[in-house]
Amino acid sequence: MDLLNAIVALSNFVLVPAIAYGSQLALGALGVTLIYGILRFSNFAHGDTMAFGTMATILFTWWFQSLGISFGPLPTALLALPLGILGCMAIVLLTDRGIYRFYREQKAKPVILVIVSMGVMFIMNGLVRVIIGPDDQNFADGDRFIITAREFREMTGLREGLALKSTQGITVITAVIVVALLFWFLNRTRTGKSMRAYSDNEDLALLSGINPERVVMITWLIVAALATVAGVLYGLDKSFKPFVYFQLLLPIFASAIVGGLGSPVGAIAGGFIIAFSEVTITYAWKKVLTYLLPEAWQPDGLVQLMSTDYKFAVSFVILLIVLLVKPTGLFKGKSV
């Protein structure tokens, strides 16, 4: 019984949140990795692209809510999501046409594009704050829980409860669908193959008649969709605050680099590695250990390796280790 209680406590506080957070990071990291693979620079504006897409989705959600449209037990934001994606696509294409294309034509070095993307980041960041304000916005509605801790306890008779938030369920299901669609697209369709070809060998792709501008445009469209989905899922699960999305850039980049920049599989693996390490290292293990250890060994303290304030430090330590030991990342991306 103690073992079961320990497992449930572990699932409730570590596994479930880490899987949800990992899915969000993975979707974000996929966007970073695609830009890196195809446009060959690290897009620092990705966090704020996510914020912009989420903001657009929130605005549409509010509009739907004011019209009295709802999605039953599911959050209205899911209905607004396609519109939010379109909004994000528009701004991303606009920045590409207006800014990045100029540097592409100059054949600017990646490092210059990185700095340019930082500029874009600050502009987008400001834009989002001007439009929706710097504060927390709550836009989740619909059922809060798939199963609450109390229902679970009553159902199983265990002392520990397992709460499953509906946003966590939605996150995982959406992430699986989006990733499946993306991989189908990259591996099975001609457009996806052109993208892979362009990422693999740019010179040859050009000499094979692949139109670089089209590949770049499609990449941006996909990245905008991924960023919006990732941002909305994160916002539903926690809350939306522009500054938090700016900070999310760090674990997202850590995920993409740990998995290997340019490798979509790596981005997903990296997302989960970062999420699981952040959650396990900042979790207070006392509860789980109380069930598992004999009474004499039971810990007095919280057995928390690090306070949650340091969670970003965790991703950076992992990032440093990976860069030292295996600079191309776990799935052999391009070296940074």
Partner: peptide
């Protein structure tokens, strides 16, 4: 030069441009 992660056949199939599958 080659697209190293694709098979030889896929390499050849990449070539003709303006295939209808290239449009979203």
């Amino acid at each position: 030069h080659e697209f190293s992660s694709m098979t030889c056949r896929e390499n050849l199939m990449m070539v003709p441009g303006n295939q209808s599958g290239e449009r979203l």
